[in-house]
Design a protein around this nucleic acid. Structure first.
Lengths: 149, 149
DNA sequence: GCATTGTTTTGAATAATTCAAAAACAACGC
DNA sequence: GCGTTGTTTTTGAATTATTCAAAACAATGC
């Protein structure tokens, strides 16, 4: 029986993830993936801030590069709600959607919509070959509802 | 019986539209609205190009200003698909959705989705007060389907 | 017509993201 | 273990959509 430090175990998982996707395992990529584990809908800047303490010397450009690589490999999902910068998330396997606050930009997950399946089929696709459907709900988050004049 | 030039009639309609929304009627606003009549999902730059010939001296900033005013007044809808600049459209009364080409960024309208109504209700809204739902279908347009390797 | 208030122009700034070249590094075979 | 090769990161700069601010101007109500 081998005893592994929890931290190490997580990093091993992430290494395997990268490896499995045909990507080289680098400290920056592991750090970005780790940062995404504990954050939902993080943007490049948040991730940069999260990575910096443990991996000083990392550049913002590297973070963008890593995120682009992870996205191309299908390991992270990128959403760009109107008015926000690009946000990244690790939940890629399920087909969940997003609630975005019109006032503060906060993003929350919606696990499913009622009658989800039919939503993925438009009635007339104008010759498009459809790959995915993205649903964004706009409104006011809990906090911002109290700020109205 | 009065005979009105068609061009003039359209402009009168647009003037009434602006007036009804409590906005001042200016040449730039009429020109932008007119440009939007014949264009679907136009961005600020396209509109600027469309306005310039008939109204030289108009600045890009003015176009942005007009579009923001029209949007705030609810006269135009603004969509910002990931990877594109903001696009504007006059169809605001209906609740239609969009097809966006992942390759060339082309945007098409989808009149309705099968089972449209249920789509507007998420199962768990996390305390959000929901105002609207936006559906974007991602895929390849007719043209871009032939460019695949 | 004239004053008021809102809009447009002019000119400059902002901020997210990407580009490019050179240095650093990971993966692989030996 | 060690060099080679191709990829990734750093460093430094560019791009581009959009907004900001002050001054000139124009629409509306009287």
């Amino acid at each position: 029986m081998t005893i592994t430090l929890p931290q190490k175990a997580v990093t091993d998982d992430l290494s395997a993830l990268l490896h499995g996707a045909g990507l080289r395992v680098t400290a920056q990529r592991l750090a970005v993936l780790l940062a995404l584990e504990s954050r939902r809908h993080a943007d490049a800047d948040e991730i940069f801030d999260a990575v910096r303490p443990t991996l000083p010397g990392t550049s913002v450009q590297a973070v963008y590069g890593v995120l682009n690589a992870l996205h191309s490999a299908g390991l992270v999902r990128r959403i760009e709600p109107a008015g926000s910068t690009a946000r990244y998330e690790r939940r890629i396997d399920d087909n969940h959607h997003h609630l975005v606050c019109e006032r503060c930009g906060r993003v929350e997950d919606v696990d499913c919509v009622v009658g989800a399946a039919p939503c993925l089929t438009p009635s007339d696709s104008s010759g498009f070959e459809i790959h995915s459907a993205e649903i964004t709900f706009w409104g006011l988050c809990n906090e911002c509802q109290h700020f109205r004049g």
